[in-house]
Design a protein around this nucleic acid. Structure first.
Lengths: 251, 251
DNA sequence: CGCACTATTGAGTATAGTCAACCGGTGTGG
DNA sequence: CCACACCGGTTGACTATACTCAATAGTGCG
């Protein structure tokens, strides 16, 4: 909504010049991203393999389905969606990624991108050359273990979503989605109770296996019931407990 | 649920004695499991960290939710399901695991088992102490990369299931399930066209987000339509192409 | 032999999907 | 600068898909 306004049409999509190259050592996401638990010296070694930052404009692709895989991407600022395209052209959203989260882990197994990554707002990522990262993992046990935890967390999260999709009714899905977003924003230091959705109703529906109409109706219902306040994409959670209660009603 | 009945109370669940300890070097799953692409010398080193095999009787748990995490498990023979228990006692199935597949990857992130693993038939696993495995990954780049691929493949597979659950109708879900099983059996060298289901209709339904009645009705319908022949748990795929066609009708 | 479990099938229902109209804000072009 | 078109969102009416409840039958194990 608003972000388009802020978007300067002249901003090119380029790797950032070397002088503003990525630097974990000075990054505010240090405690959420790859460097967790590393010593300053180790962070410095990590810094050295991160070739560049990369800006992606809202609506543009960071990578497309079928692209050869060579890098992982750590979201620095902004937000992304990953999308699966079916033959008929319709797209399904497989995930949303916020600051500190890693994109591209699924491509390791296939050496090609299996999904496309599209920026939901003007965003910036750190480019992590995977080959060099693997070398570094061999040398820094703490980084190795943390990387395994990151992949494992992805598996966990996906399984959580599977449970949600397989077992929950529409209202519980949307409730769980809001609570999940709330927690992720809280982790980033933002308010857990008030945040802005980065995606449309249609994108939420695609992700949750619902239609945009159902999502819209549920937002209205939650609002009437006093669980949330919602104005366009601004969400305020008014009754966190009641929202949690909705998702417990799992068959 | 039911499984308690069949479990013989006398067969102990134990680590196999040392003389029949796990040995990748002589395992028929070498090309599907961890050792993919390793030299004989490297496989030997892998062998040395695999402390034991472990037999699990049909219906018994390999591990339970909340167990501390220290090992991964490679399925050697048999099949497992992983289950999530909700407070009210109902269980949801998050995955099925056949020979050569790795159990427990989600627990790396939490240091505890997030799901329970229950044998669908009398089964045997190789126990992989994760700490020692990580050490070995640091020393054998080929093993490291393959392990990353295995984790990545898990992420891919989960995302595939998410797409299925979020976007497909009941018949497409079941069709995709059958085709997926068929491919996995084919990988193991079994027939792709004829196999035995290891799980009940209820377990399939739980996994696919359907009721057991819907699963049963769909099997009947597929059967009437000449797509498959099914007798209890014996499945024969008669028209693979038509089955594939069903799952394309997404959205 | 009988019980418990698994599976099949039917009838009625509820949930979410489909189709459609409408609204408001935003950005574009006359 | 205003009008208009477009996109995202809301709401309503109707419908279809899959769920619930229920009855029945076949298997396999104790």
């Amino acid at each position: 909504m608003t972000s388009t306004r802020r978007t300067s049409p002249t901003l090119p999509i380029i790797a950032a010049p070397a002088n503003i190259k990525a630097a974990c050592s000075s990054c505010s996401l240090q405690e959420l991203c790859l460097p967790v638990g590393l010593s300053p010296a180790e962070i410095d070694r990590l810094d050295r393999i991160i070739s560049s930052r990369h800006a992606t404009r809202r609506g543009s692709s960071l990578y497309r389905i079928g692209d050869p895989f060579s890098n992982l991407y750590a979201v620095r600022t902004g937000a992304f969606k990953t999308v699966d395209l079916s033959e008929d052209g319709s797209e399904k959203i497989t995930g949303f990624y916020l600051s500190g989260e890693i994109l591209g882990l699924d491509a390791i197994s296939t050496d090609r991108q299996n999904f496309g990554a599209v920026a939901l707002e003007d965003s910036e990522v750190c480019v992590l050359p995977f080959k060099r990262l693997e070398e570094l993992l061999r040398e820094i046990p703490a980084l190795q273990h943390h990387f395994h935890k990151i992949m494992s967390r992805d598996i966990m999260r996906d399984q959580g979503l599977m449970l949600l999709l397989a077992g929950m009714k529409a209202d519980a899905r949307l409730g769980a989605f809001l609570i999940g977003l709330s927690q992720r924003f809280a982790n980033l230091g933002y308010s857990a109770m008030r945040f802005r959705l980065r995606m449309t109703r249609e994108e939420i529906g695609s992700y949750l296996g619902l239609t945009l109409e159902t999502v819209s109706r549920l937002f209205s219902r939650f609002s009437e019931e006093g669980l949330i306040r919602i104005d366009r994409r601004e969400v305020e959670i008014l009754d966190f407990t009641a929202l949690r209660a909705i998702i417990e009603v799992r068959d």
